[in-house]
Write a protein that binds this DNA or RNA. Structure first.
Lengths: 220, 220
DNA sequence: AAATATTTTTAGATTTGTCTAAATTTTTAT
DNA sequence: ATAAAAATTTAGACAAATCTAAAAATATTT
């Protein structure tokens, strides 16, 4: 089956919101998609009719098994294109998302599978998010947020929790990028701020809020 | 400026029709785009308003300089993606067109330029059609149709004039593909049919209609 | 458990791209 | 040069995806 770009965007957004909160509301979805609650309701009715989600007016909704499958396929295409853009076309991690938002809507199984093969069946996209395989299976993410890391560990930055200009600005100021390796030196119990050391630069201190938004792989 | 998929498809179709007939009619465009003449008229008004074409109701239309520039950019994206699909993802020449029809509508200069660079600035797509560069310039096609070739010449098949199932079926039957090298043995003046020899197969005779639709590069 | 606030849905409008059928203009043929 | 044919445009309708404002349902507060 083939779905419209708007239908796909709704399915994908529900999938992502479901992943971190389980309880997805009409308003949250409208916020995520930069649209109105009324539009979301219209779309929910349509997606229910297509059996992509379970939905009782006023009582909430969630993806059906089929809806989840469709969403996973969109996520797969998104992340494969992100990998392609980053790995082959040398786009930086902050440029790939927007382009992948467009490329993901080209729904052709053979194209997706060939791309996957061409890229060597990558398991993670450039942000460290796992790429579902053609059955919708994906490796559990290896990432934890920086607050979970204990003192004196070395880690590699793989993802940021939100991509607002504000956080990107602060990360840039601290010379932290995707792929940056850093050492957690100390954690201050008072405010949970952390002292970290990036390469040979002098150690710096970052807030708990920032640390929560930095996802890392712990290095052996 | 950014144009809708439908606007882009109209511009591209006008560009192609203009290339081979100079006189593009509302009906011809409707036929090309599988739509109605009325819809085409609506779109012509819109494109005129956006200054992409010159149009006087009932008196015909043609692309403006700006419209041509936009069309060339769409053609550039289409052919680069075709090259990518063929060269990197190993799709066959008859599979690439349909996919490129979707990919071409992603309009991002940096993406197009990076793709071009990644592919090594190819001059021709897998069908032998020239790829415009980022200024809209393209190498003149090296191709001629088979009826232009004289006896005892060796040529390489680079393109077919139309991609109907009927012609593809006949080509397959005659073991002619893109890249096939063949020799023109004789031309029969009576009906302009041609005797050709593909590799070591026995010589075969093809009709003028078929020869007109086979575009070739003459080999030194 | 009412009253109030919040969330969600409905109602009705708008835009884009399309359609069919009718009207108009241009072209062709007699 | 007029009648008939063909091409094009206009008029009016429709579906998809959105919007705002109002209504309805649910949740929260006192």
């Amino acid at each position: 089956m083939n779905y419209s770009i708007s239908e796909e965007n709704h399915l994908k957004a529900i999938f992502h919101l479901q992943a971190d909160s389980n309880l997805v509301t009409t308003n949250a979805l409208a916020l995520e998609l930069n649209t109105s609650a009324a539009s979301v309701t219209d779309m929910l009715k349509k997606l229910k009719q297509k059996k992509l989600l379970h939905y009782q007016p006023y009582r909430g909704f969630k993806l059906s098994v089929e809806g989840r499958k469709v969403a996973l396929d969109i996520v797969r295409r998104h992340r494969l294109w992100e990998y392609f853009l980053s790995e082959k076309l040398k786009f930086t991690w902050d440029e790939v998302h927007e382009l992948a938002e467009e490329l993901e809507h080209i729904n052709n199984k053979k194209l997706t599978d060939r791309l996957d093969e061409y890229l060597g069946h990558p398991k993670f996209d450039p942000h460290g998010d796992p790429i579902p395989d053609s059955f919708g299976k994906m490796t559990a993410s290896l990432l934890v947020d920086l607050t979970k890391v204990t003192e004196n560990k070395f880690v590699e930055v793989c993802n940021v929790g939100n991509q607002s200009p504000e956080i990107l600005d602060l990360l840039k100021h601290n010379k932290i990028h995707i792929g940056t390796r850093l050492e957690v030196k100390r954690i201050f119990p008072f405010d949970h701020s952390m002292e970290i050391k990036v390469k040979s630069f002098p150690a710096i201190t970052i807030s708990e809020q920032l640390a929560e938004n930095i996802y890392v792989k712990i290095l052996k």
